[in-house]
Simulated assay, not measured.
Amino acid sequence: MRQSFPTGRTFATTLTGTARFVAAEKLLEDVEAIPACGSIVALPQFAIVDFEGRESINRIQWAGASCVRTVDDHVSLSLHWKIEDSALPTQSGTLMVEPQAGGGHVCAGELPHLAPGTEPRVLSGWSRHALERSLATVRDQGKQEMFSLVMSLLPYVRQSVDSAARRIYREIHDVPASQDVAIIPVIDQVEADVVIDRMLYGDDSSNWSMVTRLIRRVAATDAVVKKSVMQFISTAIWSSAETHVRAAIGDPHTGRVIRRLARLIRSAEPQVVLDVFRETYPEAQMGLNRVKAALTAGATIGAQQVAWDTVSDDESEPSTWP
C-alpha cells in the first residue's frame, strides 16, 4: 500500500497549495477589505521535519491562523510561527514582511525546512483590483494543487476499496484466515469504479467529495497538529472505503454488530436477532428493516458472476500441459 501513496514532499507541496486556495477564497469574499495598495503574502503551510532519519510532514501554525495575508503599502508585519510534534521538540520562529522603498514588500527571517515551491510568495499591487487579481491567481493555483493531490491519491483509494470489498466478504461470511482463496470482493470492478469515483469526485448532492473534504480539512484546520499527516489521511481513506463499499451493498452501519449477535445466538431470524439487539443495546435505535438488511447483505450479483466466471475458466483449462 505504501508504494501507491504519495510522497511526503508531494503532500507538503499540494497541501500548502490547498491551504492557500481556501484562505485566498475566503479573502475574496470581502473585496472591500482588500487594501487599495499593498501586497498579498502567501505563506507555507507545511514543513519537512527530520524524524529519526526520515522526513515527517508537519503543519506550520501561524499567528493569526491564515496562510494568505494582505498588507497595506508601507506597513510591516511580524509573523510568528511554530511547529508542534508529539515526538519532537517544538520549533518556532518569526518571519518579517517589510515594505520596500519603491513599493511592495519583501520577506525575511526564520523559516523551517520547506518543500521546494512552497516558499513565501509576495505579490504586490498598486490598486485594489490588481491585488484582487493576485488573490485570484493564488486561489486558482492552489485549487489546481488540491486536485493534483486528489489524482495522486487515486491508486491508494483503488487499493483501499479493493481491500475493503474483500474484508467485508470475509466478515459477512465468517471466512477463516486459512481460507483466503475462498474470498471474493463483494462488488465487481464496475461497481468498485463507481465507489472510487464517488470518493474522489463526489456526486450531484455535494460540491466536494469525501477526499476533497479531507484534503481541505487537513490543509486549512489544525486537525493534524501533533499528528502524522500521512497517517491521518491514509486512515481516513481506508475507513471511508469500507463505509462506501458497505453502502454499495446495502449493509447498514451496524451490520457487523447485528451479524455477530446472530452468530452468538445461532439464529438468522430477523425478529429474534432484533429482540436480542435491543436487550444488548437498549439505548440504540434499531428497526427490523436494518436487521434484515444486515442479515441479507453479501456480494452483489455482478461480483458473484465474476467469481463464477473465474472458477469456470479455471476448470476449463487442462490440469497438465502436453
Score class of each variant (00 low, 15 high):
residue 156 Y to C: 07
residue 281 Y to N: 13
residue 138 V to K: 12
residue 3 Q to L: 09
residue 141 Q to E: 14
residue 309 D to Q: 13
residue 57 I to A: 04
residue 165 A to K: 05
residue 50 D to R: 03
residue 238 W to D: 08
residue 209 S to R: 06
residue 232 F to Q: 08
residue 59 R to W: 08
residue 182 A to P: 02
residue 237 I to K: 02
residue 132 E to M: 13
residue 23 A to T: 05
residue 57 I to T: 11
residue 294 A to Y: 10
residue 296 T to R: 15
residue 266 R to F: 15
residue 70 T to E: 00
residue 255 G to R: 05
residue 261 L to A: 10
residue 205 S to M: 05
residue 267 S to T: 10
residue 174 D to L: 05
residue 221 T to R: 00
residue 179 Q to M: 06
residue 96 M to C: 08
residue 174 D to W: 00
residue 223 A to G: 03
residue 169 Y to F: 13
residue 13 T to G: 04
residue 30 D to E: 12
residue 293 A to T: 04
residue 155 P to Y: 14
residue 183 I to F: 09
residue 285 Q to H: 12
residue 158 R to A: 04
residue 228 S to G: 04
residue 117 G to I: 00
residue 246 R to T: 03
residue 144 Q to V: 11
residue 138 V to M: 08
residue 50 D to S: 09
residue 237 I to H: 08
residue 57 I to M: 05
residue 116 P to F: 15
residue 265 I to R: 14
residue 287 G to I: 00
residue 157 V to W: 13
residue 82 K to Q: 08
residue 69 R to C: 00
residue 153 L to F: 12
residue 2 R to W: 10
residue 50 D to W: 09
residue 43 L to N: 09
residue 136 A to N: 11
residue 81 W to I: 03
residue 126 W to L: 09
residue 165 A to P: 15
residue 32 E to A: 10
residue 169 Y to H: 15
residue 198 R to S: 01
residue 90 T to Q: 03
residue 151 M to T: 12
residue 283 E to C: 08
residue 259 R to C: 01
residue 124 S to V: 06
residue 81 W to D: 01
residue 65 A to T: 12
residue 295 L to F: 03
residue 143 K to H: 14
residue 64 G to Q: 04
residue 231 Q to K: 13
residue 127 S to D: 05
residue 265 I to P: 11
residue 230 M to S: 13
residue 73 D to N: 08
residue 174 D to H: 06
residue 160 S to R: 11
residue 270 P to N: 10
residue 33 A to N: 13
residue 166 R to A: 02
residue 13 T to H: 13
residue 209 S to A: 03
residue 214 L to A: 05
residue 286 M to C: 11
residue 161 V to D: 11
residue 227 K to V: 01
residue 145 E to D: 13
residue 225 V to H: 07
residue 164 A to M: 06
residue 286 M to G: 05
residue 172 I to F: 06
residue 299 A to W: 15
residue 199 M to Y: 03
residue 144 Q to D: 08
residue 109 G to I: 07
residue 287 G to C: 03
residue 104 G to K: 14
residue 176 P to L: 01
residue 90 T to K: 02
residue 108 A to D: 15
residue 256 R to M: 02
residue 5 F to R: 01
residue 66 S to K: 08
residue 270 P to L: 04
residue 50 D to F: 04
residue 207 N to G: 06
residue 210 M to S: 11
residue 156 Y to A: 11
residue 47 A to Q: 03
residue 281 Y to W: 11
residue 59 R to K: 10
residue 313 D to V: 12
residue 33 A to I: 01
residue 190 V to Y: 12
